[in-house]
Simulated scan of single mutants.
Amino acid sequence: MTEQIEVPAGTIEYTDTGGSGPVVVLIGGLAIGPSLWDGVVAALRGDHRVIVPTLPWGAHRIPMRPDADLSLAGHARIVADLLDALDLRDVTLVENDTGMAQLVAADHPQRLARLVITSCEAFENYPPGLAGKTVGLVGRLPGGVLLAMSQLRIRPLRKLPMTFGWMTKHGIPDAMMDDWLRPLLSDRAIRRDLTKYIRSVDRHVLTQTAERLRGFDRPALVAWAAEDRLMPAEHGRRLAALLPQGRFVEVPDSRTLIPLDQPDLLADLIAEHVRAEAPAVA
């Protein structure tokens, strides 16, 4: 069941499996809904409390407040505010696709016990690849987001490298993507939120954040897709080397959206990582 919580930026929807197990929070990327994580949640929920918020990347259904900061740093603050509002402690934060979890770990680590970074934006690869640059261009044109999303009603266009084509090895089900795109196609305020993020992009922010990750002294797993065509594996290795307790693993038979291509393997990696010793977070 979807629940709601108020944070300073607005209302955030989330799902929560409940239970008393270790807390795992899963977050994804632009125009990608929480169903990205369905396979991972199914594998983890028996022994973990799994929370999947729908952040204002475009697949959200409730617009943020007009004055909300929706930059990458603003999204990191939303995650920190969400963890505070839900009073979550000793959290394992898992992110895919966007690089925002790096900012959470660097600037808002208070409630984190562990970090899992899967294939994502990092260093100078922001926005990433042809798809990221295309989004950056259309987001700066009047009506550009609506035009771009409307074209994705044509299902074959979703498989192009400049859209979602290079993001998975095994494809995204059409019904799933229809659900992800529906808010952007139907609600001007949701398009406003995504446009606000796109126009805030500072291509230097993740390079600047990387050095601050040296201060995150808790277990960190960097799991990178072996066949990623958008996020260079070398960036994953560099991130793992920066993190004092970083460990790098390569995920076979997958591209960027590892939670879709390899949900069971990713769930196993997360569960193993959760079992690692970590200091309690006050």
Rank of each mutant, 00 (worst) to 15 (best):
M1Y: 09
Q4I: 13
E6W: 08
V7G: 00
P8R: 01
A9P: 00
A9H: 01
G10T: 05
G10S: 04
E13D: 13
Y14M: 00
T17M: 09
T17L: 08
G21K: 05
V24N: 03
V24T: 07
V24G: 01
V24E: 01
L26G: 03
G28W: 00
I32H: 02
L36S: 03
G39D: 08
G39W: 04
G39F: 07
V40Y: 00
V40R: 00
R49E: 04
T54L: 05
L55R: 00
L55K: 01
P56G: 01
G58S: 09
G58F: 02
A59P: 03
I62G: 03
P66Q: 04
A68K: 01
A68W: 01
L72Y: 13
A73Q: 12
A76W: 03
A76K: 02
D81P: 03
D84R: 12
D84E: 15
D84W: 04
L86V: 06
L93G: 01
V94N: 00
N96L: 09
A101C: 08
Q102R: 05
D107N: 13
H108W: 05
P109M: 08
R111T: 02
A113T: 09
R114S: 03
R114K: 15
V116Y: 04
E121K: 11
N125E: 14
P127C: 12
P128A: 15
K133T: 14
G139A: 08
G139V: 05
G139D: 02
R140A: 11
R140M: 07
R140D: 09
R140N: 14
R140I: 06
R140K: 15
P142I: 09
G144C: 10
L146K: 15
S150C: 12
Q151T: 15
T163L: 06
T163K: 05
G165L: 05
H170E: 06
G171M: 05
A175G: 08
D178H: 07
W180Q: 02
W180G: 02
A189L: 14
R191E: 01
R191V: 04
D193G: 02
L194W: 05
T195S: 14
K196A: 05
K196F: 02
Y197P: 00
R199W: 09
R199N: 15
S200C: 03
D202E: 11
D202L: 07
V205C: 11
T207P: 06
T207I: 13
A210E: 10
R212I: 05
R214L: 12
P219V: 07
V222W: 06
D228H: 10
L230I: 15
M231S: 13
P232G: 13
E234F: 11
G236S: 10
R237C: 06
A240L: 10
D253H: 14
I258D: 01
P259F: 07
P259M: 11
P263H: 08
P263W: 01
A271F: 13
E272C: 12
H273Y: 11
V274N: 03
A276N: 12
P279D: 12
A282F: 09
